[in-house]
Design a protein around this nucleic acid. Structure first.
Lengths: 202, 202
DNA sequence: TCCATATGAGACATCAATGTCTCATATGGA
DNA sequence: TCCATATGAGACATTGATGTCTCATATGGA
């Protein structure tokens, strides 16, 4: 492994644990001198930008590996469902590996990274729109909400894993199951909930 | 309003927008001198700790105002459901006002704040356990997951509002609806949840 | 062996944030 | 008016992170 990759891997691990870690800490974690780190990455911004790029690469790979493009092109319920079930387990892993990218703000600070992020988000919104058209998810809610809800549950998954509240083996199913079916026992549209006066209709 | 409260309010707003904002920025936002800020809060830690305390106060008030204790004592499905429907709209507002507390790490750094956080979390887990016993939420999933899922969706709500993707009027219903019923159209019945060959809308 | 390149150690300067200090001023009550 | 208190402005030192520099050393290929 090249020194450059050593540094990037160590930076990812270190910043994941503490987003405010200093370059000295990162260099030490990478087992290289501070000067060497500066030779490969002139400044902290360069290092962080590269990490952001890697995170977005990973996200893009996850979308590709899940067959998102094919599912959107296919448009059928089976294809969309298969895509979701392929994508979320990968996303859970991504959220753990690049967890800091979920919450940190550097993604929106750099214009180039922000543009890439927006493009990937748009791609996923396209999947959710297809899922609506295919009858897989409810059509009456804004598709963009599904994007946010999905990533909110990924944050939940990361936190739950960190707290040791759920088994790693179960967490991907838990996320997708909660996202698609919710945690309630009542059905959403049949006004079977006992107390809500206006029923479940929105 | 006392100077101390001026500073606290400005600090909340400023740190909410940028968690790395300097004390000079906060003082300026509060319309006070930097020395005055230091007179009320000897160091940054003191200020942040106070803000954390306030966030936890707010959370506690939300739990109280939602009748959580009564709902747990009652144990009935109606009481639990009413508590949830009262709590989440408040939590959405809390998440916006004290948003930075959702993700920042100072809550877990200070032992006292961490203890309060754990106590409030435990209280809410108690509500979820009651909800399971009352048949309001699915009993087969870990109650702690409901805690994480709920707060994950609050993060989603905050992000969606920031992005302008959902209307403020709708977001509380959206969160609770998504949490309880999910976004899918298929019923989460006891049979296989992996692939729904039918998948059609009801 | 010889040499180009990468590295480690560390000195050094810079910068922003922080914390402490003094002093002049304003405010409000006795 | 007189005084205690709070404040604003700003000087000052400290600290940690950052970025640049030099020099000795190691490594690997020609």
């Amino acid at each position: 492994m090249s020194t450059r990759e050593q540094v990037l891997d160590a930076a990812l691990r270190t910043l994941n644990a503490d987003p405010t870690a200093s370059l000295a800490t990162i260099a030490e974690a990478a087992g290289v001198g501070r000067a060497t780190l500066h030779r490969h990455f002139p400044g902290r911004d360069d290092l962080v930008r590269e990490l952001g790029d890697r995170s977005l690469d990973r996200w893009e790979q996850t979308q590709d590996a899940s067959g998102m493009a094919d599912a959107i092109a296919d448009g059928g319920a089976e294809a969309v469902t298969a895509c979701l079930h392929s994508m979320f387990p990968r996303l859970v892993v991504d959220a753990e590996d690049h967890g800091f990218a979920l919450t940190d703000s550097f993604l929106v600070c750099d214009p180039e990274l922000a543009a890439r992020t927006a493009a990937l988000e748009e791609r996923e919104v396209g999947l959710w729109r297809t899922a609506q058209a295919a009858g897989v998810v409810r059509p009456e809610l804004p598709a963009r909400w599904y994007l946010h809800a999905g990533y909110g549950l990924l944050v939940a998954a990361r936190d739950a894993l960190r707290a040791g509240d759920v088994a790693r083996r179960d967490v991907a199913d838990l996320v997708l199951d909660t996202l698609l079916h919710g945690i309630g026992t009542s059905t959403p549209t049949t006004t079977s909930t006992t107390t809500t006066p206006e029923g479940g209709a929105r």
